[in-house]
Design a protein around this nucleic acid. Sequence first.
DNA 1: AGTATTCCGTAGTGATTGATACACAAAATA
DNA 2: TATTTTGTGTATCAATCACTACGGAATACT
Lengths: 177, 177
Amino acid sequence: MLLFWRHGYESTSLTDLTTALGVTPPSIYAAFGDKKRLFLEAVGRYVGSPMTSSSIIANAKTARDAAVALLTASAIGFTGVDSPPGCLLASAAISCSPDAADVQRELTTIRRSIEHELTSRIAQDVESGVLPRGVHSETLSAHVMAVIQGMSTLARDGAARAKLLRVCETAMLAWPS
Amino acid sequence: MLLFWRHGYESTSLTDLTTALGVTPPSIYAAFGDKKRLFLEAVGRYVGSPMTSSSIIANAKTARDAAVALLTASAIGFTGVDSPPGCLLASAAISCSPDAADVQRELTTIRRSIEHELTSRIAQDVESGVLPRGVHSETLSAHVMAVIQGMSTLARDGAARAKLLRVCETAMLAWPS
DNA sequence: AGTATTCCGTAGTGATTGATACACAAAATA
DNA sequence: TATTTTGTGTATCAATCACTACGGAATACT
């Protein structure tokens, strides 16, 4: 997972994986089938630890809290000391060859589902009057997602955690009162 | 440039390039040296057309105008009908093998210089009183850059131009009055 | 204890990667 | 017109890619 996180799906060779794991290719292929499924397994581990975006959104009292929690968790997760900078979902398969188009679509689906969950949570608060009527939930959600994906690039470019956390605060200034 | 834009640096093979250009490998190597320099040449063409970020920032009356112009130009440029979705700078060399680390650093340098120019433009408005004292120019600039880089991912995931333009408006709600 | 099964390392598969030696042809120069 | 220079295609380079056939060792079952 860390190798895919740092170097991406296609640029992580089987040699990289076997040497890092201390095993030989047949072991990997017996356990996972092929490189594609191994990668998706690693993605599953990434999105499920330590806390899923879904649970963050579900456990938040308000949509605003959900947005703050998502942004903050991202800023922290993208600048871990013993993990590659940035977001695996945002960087591992952004640009790839046609052979990996299905892998690319898989990550797109995950990103869109997170965005959709946040959109629904916002719409729920608009519905219940917590957020003013007229708020465009889809746009508000897209802005939060854009900041998250963008912070991944900033982190990869060397931005410190404190800087990303300040970006989160700034992004939340766009949140309707 | 379009091939690198769509598939990234490493996933664009020399075969892709030669067949698209209608030439054979020796012609490319005689003209550009190697794949790395050809890519950087394509990047230079990308950042210089039709308008550079530097000129957008320089020609804007205020830092706010610069931010709006950068965001809008990005939203439009990332959703062109006859160009790949997203931003070449944001996607072509985000995750790559150690062999391409220098290419990665090159794009990081470009991204950081754009961010730095915007930071300076904001600081200038704070200095002259156009923006209130206490505004953290670096954070404000980083937020704009994050939204831009994030919109690249949204565009690659299929977001429409109108949606990205609405994201731009939302992002500008975080701008100090 | 003897047999069957699972597991993994050795070694190598064909295909593709970026990059080149060489020869020939067109064009520029003398 | 003769000669040099430039440029491109043919064919191929070693290296690496994801992937696998096969044999031997360790384990599980009878």
